[in-house]
Design a protein around this nucleic acid. Sequence first.
RNA 1: GGAGAGGUGGCAGAGUGGUCGAAUGUACCUGACUCGAAAUCAGGCGUAGGUAUAUGCCUACCGUGGGUUCGAAUCCCACCCUCUCCGCCA
Length: 431
Amino acid sequence: MLDIQTLRTDLTTVAARLATRGFVLDTERFGELEAARKAIQVRTQELQSKRNSSSKLIGQAKARGEDTTAIMAEVALVGDELKLMEVQLGELQVALQQMLEGLPNMPHDSVPVGKTEADNVEVRKIGSIPQFGFAVKDHVELGEGLGGLDFETAAKISGARFSVLKGGLARMHRALAQFMLDTHTDQHGYTEVYVPYIVNADSMRGTGQLPKFEEDLFRVPRQMGESGEQNFYLIPTAEVPVTNMVRDEIIPMEQLPLKYVAHTPCFRSEAGSAGRDTRGLIRQHQFEKVELVQIVHPDESYAALEQLLGHAESILQMLGLHYRVVRLCTGDIGFSAATTYDIEVWLPAQNTYREISSCSNFEAFQARRLQARFKCGTGKPELLHTLNGSGLAVGRTLVAVLENNQLADGSVSIPEVLRPYMGGLEVLRAS
RNA sequence: GGAGAGGUGGCAGAGUGGUCGAAUGUACCUGACUCGAAAUCAGGCGUAGGUAUAUGCCUACCGUGGGUUCGAAUCCCACCCUCUCCGCCA
């Protein structure tokens, strides 16, 4: 959420910056709502003030045993108009709030201006494209050949975009997650957290998934009381529960930065991506991810972003995977982000780079919705900055390891760093 | 699932339908005392918003949402959450 004060004082600048990401801000409507809000709020507060002072007089008069019918009749009139004004004011505030919640974050000045992912800027390439002396197989073929990947059974159990992993593949999948967690906790100073996978609507609103992107989520309806229904949601990323840990909190400054890592399943309905990446593990309704979250002082957030990006990259380096880092352009960054780097890993079977991590600085955008603040000494509480990045998407990392480490006979050599997690096994073969 | 207790400022904890935005303690800040610290004393200290430029005034907020009333932290209703005991359970 953007700061409403900034919109009030500097509407045209905000509109211009949002325009770079292809968002049209209806400045006229905002102006109208604001003008109406102002007029009605002033009138409402006037009436409230009058009611309060009159009520006080009534109390005092009654205490003296005087007659109060005249003044009570007067206050009754105030009450009628007040009721009307309060209703109108409430409606206006809801409308303004809805408008505000629908506005994306402003891209940081350093973000390259562009319209689509074609305008993203490559920052660096690490490693080189591996060469194979044989026709490469994709991960589906490899996985099925190893007897560890079964989409048909998954389809029977659940449906499309689910998978069943077995044997060595299932173990390697688990090994990857363990390896990532251990690396981030032991070497990068993150605190491991275990969090709920089902969250309430307030949490989804806090990190920006609601109200705009409900169709991307799996909703869990829940009966509350006798009549009310209140939805829960399956998390689309650990970002949601982990970042929401600081919702409505005031963190003492000396505790910053907070660095959390969580391994969770992620659930995405993938509405609107029908027909895209239907083969294999790339785009699933359920997948595992190790997520890095940092909650930092506003002055530190861009340094923290570089650091976090490096932490995610180090996993790929240790696995010996070739990748590149891409800076997303204004037209391609997500709703809540001010700046985003994507890490794309090389997939030989697709002969292309595929996103395996996305690292973003949200500045105060999420913190404002979350009311996540810090306090320094006696100073006023100020909004924190939040960041997160995948470190990494486990399923896609498994794909990358399988495809990049395949051998001519369809077996897969296991990266050295994973071997301790796999009982010392060096090569994954058909069982 | 059954029974009970409770949700008030950073924390703890009072609160009678009428100057209650809220006592008190504690933490914190400033000043005094001190070489300095502790102790003591004095003062300050919630959040959000409006108005505007005045060290000013006003409004809202006591779990959430409704209701009663001229007036609600206080009364009524519904819900949420926490804790204790019993039952069941991975």
